[in-house]
């Protein structure tokens, strides 16, 4: 009997040890929150008072621009946290509306096309006014920078040669060839007006099929280079255009409109001092600068944050 009791006791002890081990593991994990981040991820949905949350979409330039604007705010003594690589505009706009993100680098015409696909885009100022009219009441658009980065339909060198397309060709010239071509772009390009829908309704282009890639990133570049797709949505600041001799087709109907880098801001979250800091950045950022900075990130593989701070310093903004 004693031996049974003893072994039963020892079993209890082992179960106890297991419970203790599990509890310890749980405590360890709960405390294991990656020491070097300041924001609590579970409470991260609502921006903390006084802290500006700068967001970015899921492509390299968006991260770079968010870093530039965010670091400029930091230089003025404003507390900044980042929420990078969120996804597409379809997602980030929702997060802007509910205040999870305070500042987001946007492209004015692309944003307008999202808010109002039918809107005509005649000038950058008119676009900004139209965007402000359509924006959620809690949001506003700050001054646009001269830097522009549009979506574009770009064909690879082989396709350009085959269908005799040059840098002076327009999207309308693609009409004959389109049914033979596979076009690539981000998944959202498929349903956007500044995408397959507009290409069909404005230029009458109907492609053989659509291949969902990424937002002008390496997947798209690789697919176009290897002729997996013959045409693709490539950003006009993409350094691979020159490198791979891609041909960007002209857009006389302004389907892709204006795409000046413009901060989208949640009104409650940003002080006037912050607005001034962002405006100062936008004033100095032009297309040539943006191209250079993009090349540093995408070709030279420098970290976007380093590129951002270096440029802010050289421009006297930080």
């Amino acid at each position: 009997m004693t031996s049974t009791a003893k072994s039963s006791w020892s079993r209890t002890r082992h179960t106890g040890a297991a419970v203790a081990a599990l509890t310890a593991a749980a405590a360890l994990l709960a405390g294991c929150s990656s020491g070097d981040t300041s924001d609590d991820p579970l409470a991260g949905e609502k921006a903390k008072a006084g802290t500006v949350v700068v967001g970015s979409n899921n492509f390299a330039e968006s991260t770079l621009l968010a870093d530039i604007y965010g670091e400029a705010l930091k230089a003025k003594g404003i507390k900044v946290t980042y929420k990078h690589n969120i996804g597409s505009r379809e997602t980030t706009y929702g997060l802007m509306k509910n205040g999870s993100v305070t500042v987001l680098p946007e492209y004015n015409g692309s944003l307008l096309a999202y808010l109002d696909p039918k809107a005509e885009q005649k000038s950058a100022e008119a676009v900004n006014e139209a965007v402000k009219a359509k924006l959620d009441k809690k949001l506003t658009l700050l001054k646009s920078s001269p830097a522009e980065d549009k979506d574009s339909v770009t064909v690879n060198a082989a396709t350009a040669k085959k269908y005799k397309l040059t840098s002076s060709s327009t999207l309308a010239d693609l009409k004959e060839a389109a049914p033979d071509l596979v076009i690539g772009g981000s998944p959202e390009f498929q349903t956007r007006h500044q995408g397959l829908e507009g290409l069909k309704s404005v230029y009458g282009l109907e492609f053989k099929s659509f291949k969902a890639l990424d937002a002008g990133g390496p997947l798209t570049q690789a697919a176009l280079t290897r002729n997996t797709v013959q045409a693709a949505d490539i950003f006009t600041t993409d350094p691979t255009i020159v490198k791979e001799k891609f041909v960007v087709l002209k857009d006389p109907e302004n389907l892709f409109g204006f795409a000046n880098v413009t901060p989208l801001v949640h009104k409650d979250g940003l002080s006037q001092k912050g607005v001034d800091a962002l405006d100062a950045v936008s004033a100095k950022l032009d297309t040539k600068t943006l191209l250079e900075l993009d090349a540093q990130v995408q070709l030279e593989k420098k970290d976007p944050l380093d590129v951002a701070t270096a440029w802010l310093k050289s421009a006297g903004l930080a």
Binding site: G87, S88, E90, T91, G94, S186, P187, E188, Q190, T191, A212
Partner: peptide, 8 residues
């Protein structure tokens, strides 16, 4: 994946 990016 498309639904995620198209918010559909």
């Amino acid at each position: 994946v498309d639904g995620l990016y198209q918010r559909n």
